[in-house]
């Protein structure tokens, strides 16, 4: 089943499987769909629960949730929806164990499936605004962002260049990105 990941799904798209499951209610269909993302879901559960055994149980629990939820809800983007279900389930489990994780920043759900179409003029405007916003960043963030986006260096490389830890680089980039977004939104535009 994992081979499917490497090749494009020539057989059926996610959406087709979703529709089939809603029609027929056959858990095998759901199982096949779930398997496409099971390891990533397991990884997500590992992130929150931090224990392999627990994470495995949770993955199976999430599957059970899907059995019912997918029947009831309209789902157009299965992957994104699945992620949300899984994450919420993990957070609920953590909350009941009274281990509230660090408050999750409400990330914009920017999936690659949602691109922005921009014409040339708009892009030009955006670029201008963006450079201004970058100027507004702190030096660390600014430098890191430039390395990451402009010079397309990986975190690892940037860590080497700036003599900072990999994790720190990552969080710098993430924070910078957030700040840029806020800055761009203030000016009436969002940075995609």
């Amino acid at each position: 089943m994992s081979f499917l990941r490497d090749t494009l799904n020539t057989q059926t798209t996610d959406q087709e499987l979703v529709n089939q499951y809603k029609r027929e209610g056959d858990v095998r269909v759901l199982g096949e769909l779930f398997q496409r993302y099971m390891d990533l879901i397991y990884a997500v559960c590992m992130k929150y629960l931090k224990e392999p055994a627990e994470a495995q149980d949770t993955v199976m629990d999430i599957f059970e949730e899907l059995v019912n939820k997918l029947r009831k809800h309209e789902v157009s983007n299965f992957k994104g929806w699945l992620y949300t279900v899984a994450k919420n389930y993990c957070l609920m489990a953590l909350r009941s164990k009274k281990q509230i994780p660090l408050t999750q920043m409400p990330e914009f759900m920017q999936l690659a499936e949602n691109p922005h179409l921009e014409n040339a003029v708009e892009k030009e405007l955006n670029l201008n605004r963006l450079s201004k916003c970058i100027e507004g960043l702190s030096p660390d963030q600014k430098y890191t962002v430039q390395l990451f986006y402009l010079e397309e260096k990986s975190y690892k490389e940037i860590a080497g260049i700036t003599q900072t830890e990999w994790n720190k680089v990552r969080s710098l980039v993430q924070n910078a990105r957030r700040n840029l977004k806020i800055c761009m939104d203030k000016n009436g535009l969002s940075d995609e």
């Binding site: 990533l40 397991y42 990884a43 997500v44 559960c45 590992m46 992130k47 929150y48 931090k50 392999p52 994470a55 992957k79 994104g80 992620y83 994450k87 990330e107 759900m109 920017q110 999936l111 690659a112 980039v173 993430q174 990105r177």
Partner: peptide
């Protein structure tokens, strides 16, 4: 950075 799902997955495998 764009996809929180991917980001969480990376962190989870890291944790693993």
């Amino acid at each position: 950075l764009e996809d929180p799902f991917l980001a969480d997955a990376i962190e989870g495998i890291e944790e693993s």
